[in-house]
Amino acid sequence: PDSPLARWTKSLHSLLGDQDGAHLFRTFLEREKCVDTLDFWFACNGFRQMDLKDTKTLRVAKAIYKRYIDTSSIVAKQLKPATKTFIRDNIKKQQIDSAMFDQAQTEIQTSMEESPYQMFLTSDIYLEYV
């Protein structure tokens, strides 16, 4: 069977599905000043599991928008303008949907896979843990 460490190198998804892996990657991203991308990624997963009939869900959608998309955060910088417009319009019309952040999450995930994930696997934080 795969050890946790073997799983971490398999994909970003397997790294983030492991508690120690996600924790260590978060520490790395804090140092690189881009931890917002990871929090946004988890927020999207959490949002998808929320009950659309619950009034809290709209408030969470607004909070995600305000904190990560309608700002100059690293998340907003990495998203395509059309993706941000789509989410803004949904929030404005109060039309929330479980999949409304999916495209944005995919864009952030792709960008994490291209750069910070690769850097993490050669970082001292990772190597010391190994």
């Binding site: 983030l16 996600a22 959490g46 599991q49 929320m50 969470v60």
Partner: peptide, 20 residues
């Protein structure tokens, strides 16, 4: 009532992997 920040934090935490 929870503040928006609290709700967001709970949402993030709910999606994080649990102890193996």
């Amino acid at each position: 009532m929870d503040s928006e920040d609290d709700l967001l934090q709970k949402c993030i935490t709910s999606a994080m992997p649990k102890q193996r």
